[in-house]
Every structure is written in structure tokens, then in C-alpha cells.
Design a binder for these strands. Structure first.
Lengths: 214, 214
DNA sequence: GAGGATTTTTCGGCACGCCGAAATATCCTC
DNA sequence: GAGGATATTTCGGCGTGCCGAAAAATCCTC
């Protein structure tokens, strides 16, 4: 049981993301791409994680978290999302500016400081992207959702989450008034109305990046 | 000119501490003791720092900062002390609890966040120990001082600084009311009066750990 | 189901920061 | 100023996390 490692946490976090919204098995090559590492590096690390009981993996197969791995990943993600929330609320960072800073601090802030931040924020259950923040026990609050591109025309829902992989899209949506927490009505695969106003056409990528309450 | 390194910054910071209040040349063995590293490790790192122009050092001699090294050290110390101040003021850490957290965060916080913290604190010039915080340009505010054990009996001064190496002593002094910013009158090598009250005897170590305005 | 394409793994290697043991330089005492 | 004590440096080595090249397994198409 070696001491925590930033690299290990990054792997766990990345694997976790694949099971957060749909249950995707992760292949080593996906991991390599997402972590910007050589495939050989990923193989080695995955073997190490498997030896520590954090992931399950048989040779040439996909990778998935064990319960222990999921718990640890949830803890890292809690840190990441709390830090993002804090940077936005208290330091005026924009949504798309917090990621790099959180990426570093999630590995270095003490539990004590983290909980201090959580307390000061009022123990939020969601970060500024609308992603749920696991509580200190690793439990995640969930809400039923539909993707914008899949919701039926006329469906009205609150924007629950905006996928945070694409800063450009984030800004475009924000500019169009499609912000987490806002209520919109679906007018097409990538078109919405706000407050019954005129239809607003969003970038095509929005169809699979905007999550509405069901 | 490699990218910043936490290890390098730790060496520079430690060397800097030796010239902060008196101009002590630092020997490799002192560095090794203060950094809790093997002497051989220090030799290697010092050679690396010398090659980068951050310290000057000839074989078997002491180590001192170059101007470039001092500038970099001041930047690290600025980070450290701002973070300490922030932890005390905004998260209710006690003086003697902030050091470890600051030790880590000083290497990982971005410039942007650091300056956000500085702004929120009102750009303080001193940390909770009374140590001066270099400004963003590395310039340090100085004030004339005397050590408690050296001040003449009857001298009255404000507590400017309490050496932060010894948490136990810190607590003892705080308990006795010898806090940074408080005004005391010297009644002996390790005895003071506060507000003309009865003499308070401090631990012997206080003589060389408490700094008063001259 | 054969054979080539793709994915994964193995293997040797590297940079970093560290260590202990042994060699070497300096210091200090008589 | 000789000789031992002490400080410093050199050297081989280690763990972590990474890489590229080559080998091995799997997949996919015909």
C-alpha cells in the first residue's frame, strides 16, 4: 500500500469518467489518448494499479475500477470539483479557466483545507459545470437526465450539466444563455427556446454535451 | 534552463533563510540537516544549482545565492508566507499548523491564484509569524530590530517576529501573550512585562527567537 | 479460417531526486 | 606540521514515471 501518487489518481479519475454517465469499459489506448501518454506507459501503470487492487484488468482486455479504485477516484473527483467550484465562486475564474488549476491542486491540498473549502462553500452538491460532487463518503447525488439531442421536441428541463471537455463550446453555450441551472425548452436537435422566446440554434456539438433534467 | 522544480525551490528557500536575518554562509551539511537529506544528495543538487547560475559554490566551500537565485527564493518565500497568512486568516489555522500545508501549496498554486489570494488579503507585508512577505518584485520591507535576549532591560518594543522553527515554543509564547504585534517591555534575558504588568518568564529559547522593534 | 491491421505488452533506456559506502579534501589539535 | 576527526564529494544504485522499438496477442476482413 504505497503512499498516494498524483499519477495514480490521474489514472483512476480518467477511468472513473468513463463510467460516470454511461458504463463504458475503457481500453488502454483510450486511456493513453486521454492522459496523453504512450500506450506502453499505460500498460505498465495499469498493471501496477491492478496489483494494488484498484482496477481489474486481464491482459489485452479493458480496464475497470474495483470498489476500492472507485472510492479513491470519487475522492479525487470530489477534490477536483470542489476546487473548481471554489475558484469560480471566490476568485472569479470562468468555467473554462478552472480546469488546469484544479488539476494540480486536487493532488496537493490537505484534507483539512479541502473540508474547510467545502464548508465555506456550503457543501455544494454540484460544480459549476453541473457535475455532481461526491460527498466525503464518496456518495454521488444523481438526477434523471436526457441529452439535448435526444430529448423530444417540446421537452422543458433545467440545464443539469454541460460536458466540460470543450472550452469553446462552453463559451458558445454560455453566450447563448444556456447555463447550468437555466430552464430551456427543446426546439430541435440543437435548438432551444429560453423563456418561450425565439429558437436559439446552438453548435451541433451541443446535442451531446448539454444535459437536461428528464 | 529547465522548468521549475519543487526540489530546487526548497533548496533555494532554505539557503535564503540563512541570509534573511543575518548573513550566514550555509554549509552543505547544514543544508542536508535542514532539508533532511543525505549530504551526498545535497552535493549533487548544489552542483546542479550552480550550473544553473542560482547559487555560487566552489568545491568544499559554503553555498550562497546568486542574484538570480535570491530572486527565485524570494518568489518562493512570498508564496509560502502568503499562503500561511491566508490559512490563518481565512481558515482558522493556528500559527503552528500552517507550515506543512504551505510547504506543499507554495509549489503548486498558480501565479494567478496566488495574486488572487494576495489581493483578497490586502497585499499584506508580513505573515502571521511577523516575517516579511516579499512583494511581487521580490522586494522585502525591513524594520530595525533587536533580539529579546540582547535588548537592554527596560527596552520597550513591538514583537516583530517569532522564529517559526519550533511549534512548541510558538505555543508557549502565544500562551504567555507574546504575540506578533503586541508591545512588551524587556525585564530580563527571557522575561518581559506586558502593559507594565508582572514580569513573565518565557522559555530560555525565547531569548533568541523573539524579535522586537529597536 | 488465413492473413494483415490494430492493439497491447515486453523490453531496454532515460531523467529526476534520492541513498549509502568509499574516496578525498579540509580542519583542528597536539 | 603530522595525523586523526570531520566535512564534502564521487560513485554505483534504486524507485517512479515516462518513452520508443519490437514482439505478441487480438481483431477484422475477405
Amino acid at each position: 500500500m504505497p503512499s498516494p501518487s498524483a499519477a495514480i489518481d490521474d489514472y483512476l479519475k480518467t477511468i472513473y469518467h468513463h463510467t460516470e454517465w454511461q458504463d463504458d469499459p475503457v481500453t488502454p489506448s483510450q486511456l493513453a489518448a486521454e492522459l496523453s501518454l504512450a500506450p506502453s506507459t499505460v500498460t505498465e501503470m495499469v498493471q501496477k494499479l491492478a496489483a494494488q487492487g484498484l482496477v481489474s484488468h486481464r491482459p489485452y482486455g479493458p480496464v475497470s475500477l474495483t470498489d476500492a479504485g472507485r472510492a479513491r477516484a470519487a475522492a479525487v473527483i470530489r477534490r477536483h470539483r470542489l476546487i473548481e467550484t471554489w475558484l469560480v465562486r471566490e476568485f472569479g475564474y470562468a468555467w473554462d479557466e478552472v480546469h488546469d488549476e484544479a488539476e494540480v491542486l486536487e493532488h496537493t491540498i490537505s484534507d483539512r483545507l479541502l473540508e474547510g473549502i467545502a464548508a465555506r462553500l456550503g457543501h455544494p452538491s454540484h460544480d459549476p459545470h453541473g457535475d455532481p460532487i461526491p460527498d466525503a463518503a464518496g456518495v454521488v447525488a444523481r438526477e434523471p437526465f436526457v441529452l439535448l439531442g435526444i430529448a423530444r421536441i417540446g421537452h422543458t428541463g433545467r440545464v443539469l450539466r454541460v460536458s466540460d471537455r470543450n472550452p469553446e463550446l462552453l463559451r458558445a453555450l454560455q453566450g447563448a444563455g444556456v447555463d447550468v441551472g437555466h430552464v430551456v425548452t427543446v426546439a430541435g436537435r440543437d435548438t432551444v427556446r429560453i423563456d418561450g422566446g425565439a429558437p436559439i440554434e446552438l453548435p451541433p456539438a451541443a446535442a451531446s454535451a448539454v444535459w437536461l433534467t428528464a
